[in-house]
C-alpha cells in the first residue's frame, strides 16, 4: 500500500474527530474525540516513518501516546470533580471557571 492511502485515512479520521468535538456536548465524549484526533496523527507519523525507512517517527508516536495518556488522566479527573460537585456534565453549561 502506498503512503498516500494511509495519509488520506488519517485525514478522514482527524476530521471525524473534529466533527465529534463540535457536535457532542458531553465532556467524556469530547475527550474520546480528542483521542480519535491524536490517534489519526499517530497514523500519519508512522506512515511517514515507514515511507522514509527511519524509525524516529515511531518514537514520536510513542511520545504522542504519553501526552494523550496525561491528557486523559487530567481530563477524567476534572470530569469526576465536576460530577462530585453536582455541576452539569455539559460543556455548554459549564463555560465559566467559577461555580
Amino acid at each position: 500500500m502506498s503512503t498516500e492511502w494511509y495519509l488520506v485515512l488519517s485525514a478522514l479520521l482527524f476530521s471525524t474527530g473534529a466533527v465529534g468535538v463540535l457536535i457532542r456536548r458531553s465532556p467524556l465524549v469530547i475527550l474520546l474525540c480528542l483521542e480519535l484526533m491524536l490517534n489519526s496523527s499517530n497514523l500519519a507519523l508512522l506512515a511517514f516513518s515507514r515511507a522514509h525507512g527511519n524509525a524516529d517517527g515511531q518514537v514520536f508516536a510513542l511520545v504522542v501516546m504519553v501526552v494523550a495518556a496525561c491528557e486523559v488522566v487530567v481530563g477524567l479527573g476534572l470530569i469526576v470533580a465536576m460530577y462530585r460537585r453536582n455541576l452539569p456534565l455539559d460543556v455548554d453549561e459549564a463555560r465559566v471557571l467559577r461555580k
Binding site: 500500500m1 502506498s2 503512503t3 498516500e4 495519509l7 488520506v8 485525514a11 478522514l12 482527524f14 476530521s15 471525524t16 473534529a18 466533527v19 463540535l22 457536535i23 515507514r50 515511507a51 522514509h52 525507512g53
Partner: peptide, 28 residues
Amino acid sequence: APLLGGALFVELAIAILGTGLKDFASEG
C-alpha cells in the same frame, strides 16, 4: 459542524494528494 468537518477533510486531502508529496506514491 459536519459541513466544516467535510471542508477540513477536503483541505487535508488536497494538501496530501495535490502538492509535492508525489514521492510518497510508493510503499517506501
